[in-house]
């Protein structure tokens, strides 16, 4: 299962601002339990969607080298319910700039002209934190699979191209 709660990016300004959209569908199984007979897109998943929008924004600013983790949800206020058929727009803006230790973002979720949620959160760069853990070099946040998915989802220009394989060319000496 892929835990991804945004469908695609529609705007992206490196290190400053990103906008993603998410289409909510009754084909999403959890909506049948949340709640039976009254499907509502869970606010917790909107927080996750914002963390993914902001996390990619912050990660891309340093070419996905850092392990960007959600460190804190400073504030989250929800104003409206989101139901199947809705498309929500998640807008994340970096507060100030992305720093070596991490970044803070201001997030807004809207549906059409309506304000759905206001979310502030902080991201930390794991290797730069005060007590670095033994985590190895592999970036488990922005894995190859994840980068590949970004490439698929209209972020071609953000993620570096995959390494070229040497394919033997026919008809050449």
């Amino acid at each position: 299962m892929r835990w991804i709660w945004i469908d695609k990016f529609v705007e992206f300004e490196r290190g400053r601002r990103a906008v993603a959209v998410k289409n909510v569908s009754l084909a999403e199984e959890h909506l049948h339990d949340h709640f039976p007979g009254y499907p509502v897109h869970p606010p917790t998943l909107m927080i996750e969607g914002m963390a993914q929008t902001g996390g990619v924004l912050v990660g891309e600013a340093l070419d996905f080298r850092e392990k960007v983790i959600l460190a804190k949800v400073t504030r989250a206020r929800f104003h409206r319910r989101v139901v199947p058929g809705d498309q929500i727009r998640l807008e994340a803006a970096v507060v100030g700039e992305v720093r070596p230790e991490g970044a803070s973002i201001d997030g807004r979720i809207t549906r059409g002209a309506d304000l759905v949620a206001e979310i502030q959160m902080m991201f930390a760069h794991l290797d730069q934190s005060r007590a670095p853990l033994e985590l190895g070099d592999e970036n488990f946040v922005f894995t190859e699979d994840f980068i590949r998915l970004l490439r698929m989802r209209q972020l071609n220009h953000l993620a570096p191209p995959p390494p070229r394989r040497d394919v033997p060319q026919e008809g050449r000496p």
Binding site: G96, R99, E101, M122, S129
Partner: peptide, 14 residues
């Protein structure tokens, strides 16, 4: 907590 110190720094800067 530890992460709050970073948050405080961000807010003071702003």
């Amino acid at each position: 907590e530890s992460i709050d110190y970073l948050d405080i720094v961000f807010r003071l800067e702003k």
